[in-house]
């Protein structure tokens, strides 16, 4: 179980490195898809089937949108030299940040022993014991999402609505300009 999650995480990191370093944009997007699907299996192993379904579906849609954005352009490979010194400096800085982050990770709860098991008054215990009786939903994640914490969902729907509206507003200007010309 733990070893499987470990191996899948290594797979995800390798996929991410390929996505970052390859010169062909289409290959990079497909490598990102590999990262997303590996992550979906990890979510399933971590007993989060809701997240796994949503992740795999959203990943497919992301791939379609990204490929549609890049594959029809005539510039799909990256050319040009890189600044070697700047890249080395960035890597060193990121490594220092990573070392500081490792210190922070020590303060976290153990993997496999979440905080709500130690705190009897945690809100998760209420959700788990009384969720079915209070909402009638057998899926506690949906009960939290749409009943206990429905304001979060309202904000989420607003953000999604606004971002889609922004994307449409950005993309529509050009067609109108073309008609005027």
């Amino acid at each position: 179980m733990f070893e499987l999650i470990f191996l899948l995480l290594i797979f995800c990191i390798i996929g991410a490195l390929v996505a970052v370093e390859t010169r062909d944009l289409l290959s990079a997007i497909i490598a990102l898809g590999a990262v997303g699907f590996g992550l979906s299996i990890i979510f399933l192993l971590l007993k989060a089937p809701d997240i796994a379904i949503t992740q795999i579906v959203v990943e497919i849609l992301c791939l379609v949108v990204l490929i549609r954005a890049t594959i029809s352009r005539d510039l799909t490979t990256i050319s040009g030299d890189r600044e070697f010194f700047g890249m080395i400096a960035t890597v060193v800085l990121l490594f220092v940040a990573f070392l500081f982050g490792l210190e922070v990770l020590r303060e976290l709860p153990q993997f496999g022993a979440p905080l709500f098991t130690k705190a009897p008054g945690a809100v998760t215990n209420v959700y788990l014991t009384e969720g079915l009786a209070k909402t009638g939903a057998a899926n506690i994640v949906t009960a939290i999402l749409l009943d206990f914490r429905a304001y979060d969902t309202l904000g989420e729907a607003t953000v999604l609505f606004t971002s889609i509206l922004g994307a449409m507003a950005i993309l529509r200007i050009r067609s109108r300009k073309k008609v005027r010309d």
Binding site: P49, D50, A52, I53, T54, V57, V58, I60, L61, V64, T135, G136, A137, A138, N139, V141, T142, A143, L145, L146
Partner: peptide, 18 residues
């Protein structure tokens, strides 16, 4: 069946769109 089994409005909506 979002309240009985894994899934819900978001995942189902994305499947409808796809």
């Amino acid at each position: 069946t979002g309240h009985l089994s894994p899934g819900g409005g978001f995942a189902g909506g994305v499947i409808l769109a796809s």
